[in-house]
Computed example of a mutant assay.
Amino acid sequence: MQRLGLQDSDTVYIWLADKPEATEAWTRLEEILLRAQSVNQLNGRFIQERLGNVDEALTVLKEAAAATLGYGPDGTQPTINGGGRFLGSA
């Protein structure tokens, strides 16, 4: 496409003007790509939401685990150290 000078959507459609079958195929491809992008964005939002839920659940569990340890010699509750990575960083 670059060799033909087809740099944007307008030039592609100008080039396809006398190729009805190719125009139809190109239009279907664009529709499929738009749908795939929408689904990908939706999946990304779901993943972020679920990671937030998991992070909240881990915080609650860490706090509950720390509460079972009692108090240290200085009168403070010990902290529970988590893993070395943040959620979603793998």
Rank of each mutant, 00 (worst) to 15 (best):
L33W: 06
D55Q: 11
G52V: 06
Q77H: 08
R50M: 02
I47E: 12
V54W: 06
E49F: 09
G44P: 09
D74W: 03
F46I: 01
L58W: 12
A57I: 08
I47L: 07
N40Y: 07
G75V: 00
R45L: 08
L69S: 01
Q37H: 05
I80R: 03
G83Q: 07
Q37V: 04
L51Y: 13
E49I: 11
I47W: 07
V54G: 02
L69N: 04
R50H: 09
N43S: 14
L42P: 00
R35M: 02
G44T: 14
S38Y: 07
G44Q: 13
I32G: 04
T59W: 07
T68P: 07
P78E: 03
G70L: 00
E56R: 14
E63L: 12
V54L: 09
L34E: 11
R50C: 05
V60M: 12
G75F: 04
E49C: 05
L61A: 15
P73A: 00
G70E: 10
L58H: 07
P78Q: 05
A65C: 05
G72N: 14
A67H: 11
I32D: 08
G83N: 13
A64K: 15
E49S: 07
D74S: 01
Q41I: 01
T79G: 00
E63V: 15
N43C: 00
A36S: 14
G72R: 15
A66Y: 10
Y71Q: 04
Q41L: 03
G82E: 04
R50E: 07
V54Y: 10
G82T: 10
A65H: 10
V54T: 13
D55V: 05
Q41S: 11
G83C: 05
T68G: 02
E63P: 14
I32C: 10
G70P: 04
T59Q: 10
I32Q: 12
G82K: 10
L42C: 01
I47D: 12
K62R: 15
E49Q: 12
I47G: 02
I80S: 06
L69E: 10
